[in-house]
Each structure stands twice: as structure tokens, then as C-alpha cells.
Write a protein that binds this DNA or RNA. Structure first.
Lengths: 199, 199
DNA sequence: CAAAAATGACTGACCAGTCAGTCATAAATG
DNA sequence: CATTTATGACTGACTGGTCAGTCATTTTTG
């Protein structure tokens, strides 16, 4: 699985052959089929495993007693770190997971959806907490706000990877999410204490 | 190209064979090679053509004299409509355009970057306009804010496609972008006049 | 009827998946 | 303890199917 993830770093998923993966893993091709039923199965398991690692971290990170702003920032940092460190994995997950993973019938796609939901809901839980404490507007479902924030984190890690000025601080992204890009009736008051890095 | 785009609606890019495309287009396979050098070339040209269509619309939509808020909303609507109507095209563009399109050497990827830049800059131009008129915070480059807003639109069209409540109105997304999800020192004042759809 | 355009049967490269065989290690035997 | 036997994890050459790209032939055009 590590070998595969490594290769996905430089090649599109379906461009990587099992022979390459076997060579990279320093293992015979046949061996792979002792542990995975399929090429698809290997890819899927690698993706899910990586994702579960992140979900685990998310759960450790944030107890239910941590203050909203801190929890939000913390979670964003964890997710963002994973987006960047294990980019190929998430690319598989997001683009490959798009269309149904076919043949086995259901199953694969379904299991994948679960994992994705876990991430979204971890974020949504924190946002819901912010709603309760009156720090977040309650006119939209928490899950949807979570999805938008995740989208921004993704943008930061991928679209803006070659703009180090945007990378500087996650706090800046969270600030944008909380306060928006506009200036209407708000004196751009900082809501988090550690927002110094944005110019 | 239309035939190809049609097929991409239901299959992953590399799963579509040229024989299928030829059949769908009601054309002999050889004919395709009279007009495209490559399978890759066909896909790329289809993608770029679709994208150019959108860029054209973007340019028509918004003269330099349109008021900021109106221009922003208008642009978001156009882009969002395209994201949804021609989803497979953008999926190709975004995920396929990720990694270098290889073999031809440079060229393809480069040309693609240009198109993407066009979209981002169309958005960035409007945001810059908002900065000048004092409606947008000027502490981050317009291009980066543009990228985040585009990311939100993408999220709306793709991640949230099965949540019609999030779909309701683009104005709600623009509102989130401008005012943020937080409630700090702001009485959730609506900044656009047509924000009625958000509950 | 010559030139241009279109065609689709054909080819060869490629690759997921298989399976007959290897060999290092463990268990059984005397 | 030396020797034989059993085990199963591992291997990689092979196969069957797939598909991008070609080109000899047919159709259309002017």
C-alpha cells in the first residue's frame, strides 16, 4: 500500500501497473494477490487506510470540552496537514470516488462514502458547537458550512500550493471563513488571537 | 468532441474507448484521427473548447461599469451554471490537468494553465474592483480570494449536489463569502438585496 | 474520373490476473 | 541431534482480453 501511494505521487492511478507496484514494494506480483483481491481493492484499501489515519487524529485532537475557536483551528490544521502530506491519496479518494467503483456491485463506494462522511461530520460537530455558543450563524446547516470550509482547505492545499503567501497560516483561512471577505459594517476585527501572519 | 463529453458523463475518462466515441459520434474511428492527433488531444481540445465557451460568457456578462456586488453575483452564477451543466468537462480539467499531460513534452499542460488562469483572473478582477470600492478587505491578494470563492462554488456544485437546500441560491454562497460564517460584531446584515432564499 | 474524405478491419503493445513451481522454515521421525 | 517430510508464503513467466493507432479500401465530392 505504501509502495502504491508512493507511485501515485508521480503517476495517475490507472497509469501505475501492478508490476511497478510489486517492484517498488520489492515483492512478487503474485504476492499482491494473496492480500488484495484486485487492483481496485489495493487502491481502495490504501486510500481508506490513509483516511482512517486522519480520522483517528481528528478524534484525538479535539475533546468535546475544547473551546470552539481553538477546536476549529486545530481541526483545520490537522486536515490541512493531511491534505498536503498525502495529496495523491486524497486525489484518488475525491476523483476516483466520484463515479461508482463498479463491478463488485455496491460495497466499495458505500464504504468510501462512510469515511468521507466521518471527516465532514467531525468538522460539522465543531461548527455546531460554535452555533450553540453563538459564534456561528445558525441560518445554514452545520454540515453545509463544514463542506464549504473543507473546500477552502482543499483549495489552500491544492490550487494555491504554489502561492506560499496563501499558505502562511491556516488561521488566515479560518479568519476568512468566519469573517468573510467583505468589510460591511465590520472593522475587520480579528476573532482569533493568533492571526498575526496575514498581511 | 460533443460525443466524447457525452460519454464522460457516465464513465471515467480512460474507460471511454475511441471506438465508443466514434460510434456515439456516428463516425468512423479513422475519421477521428483526421482531426485529432491523439486520444489525449481529443480530450484536451474538448475540455479547452468547453472552457473557452465559459470564458466568453464571463467576458460578455460583466462590463467594467457594472456595480461590484452585481458583477460578483453574476459571475458566480455563470461559473456555477457551467460547473453543474458540464461537470464531466471540469472534472477532466481539474483532475486530469493535475499531473502533467506528459509525452508531448510541455505544450498541453501549459495551454491548459492559461485557460484556468483566465477564469481565476476574471473573478480576481471583480474582487479587485470590490477592494477599490472598499467593499472587500484588501489584506489578501485578490487572486487568492478569487481562488477560495471558486473553491466554494465548486463545493456547492459537486460536494453538495445532493443537498438541494444548499443549492437554492448562489446569493447564499456569495453571502457566506462576503460575510463569513461567524457572528462577531455583525448583526448578520444582508449586503445584497436578493438574499431572500436562504432560511 | 481524379482528388479528397471517410471508413473499419487489423495489429501490436500492454497489462490485470493466474498458476505451476521454488525454497526457507517448521514439524515429524528415528 | 541429524535427517526427512510437510507447509505455505512467495514468485514471475504466461495468457487472454483490450484498445490506441494504422492503412488499404470504399465513398463522396467537384
Amino acid at each position: 500500500m505504501q509502495a502504491a501511494e508512493q507511485l501515485f505521487r508521480t503517476c495517475r492511478v490507472h497509469e501505475v501497473t501492478l508490476d511497478e507496484i510489486a517492484r517498488q514494494a520489492d515483492v512478487g506480483k503474485g504476492t499482491i494477490y494473496l492480500y488484495f483481491t484486485d487492483k481496485e481493492d489495493l487502491i481502495f484499501q490504501a486510500a481508506v487506510a490513509g483516511f482512517d489515519e486522519m480520522c483517528l487524529l481528528l478524534r484525538q485532537d479535539v475533546g468535546p470540552d475544547v473551546a470552539f475557536q481553538k477546536a476549529l483551528l486545530r481541526t483545520c490544521e490537522t486536515i490541512s496537514a493531511f491534505f498536503q502530506a498525502r495529496r495523491p491519496l486524497f486525489r484518488i479518494i475525491l476523483s476516483e470516488g466520484e463515479r461508482d467503483m463498479e463491478h463488485g456491485g455496491i460495497g466499495l463506494r458505500q464504504r468510501w462514502r462512510e469515511r468521507r462522511k466521518t471527516m465532514t461530520e467531525a468538522m460539522a460537530a465543531i461548527i455546531a458547537q460554535g452555533m450553540k455558543s453563538g459564534e456561528i450563524r445558525a441560518d445554514a446547516p452545520a454540515v453545509i458550512l463544514a463542506e464549504y470550509l473543507l473546500g477552502m482547505l482543499r483549495t489552500r492545499s491544492w490550487e494555491l500550493e504554489d502561492r506560499p503567501d496563501a499558505q502562511r497560516s491556516i488561521a488566515a483561512v479560518v479568519d476568512l471563513f468566519l469573517n468573510g471577505a467583505g468589510l460591511s459594517a465590520r472593522s475587520s476585527a480579528q476573532t482569533t488571537s493568533d492571526q498575526h501572519e496575514h498581511r
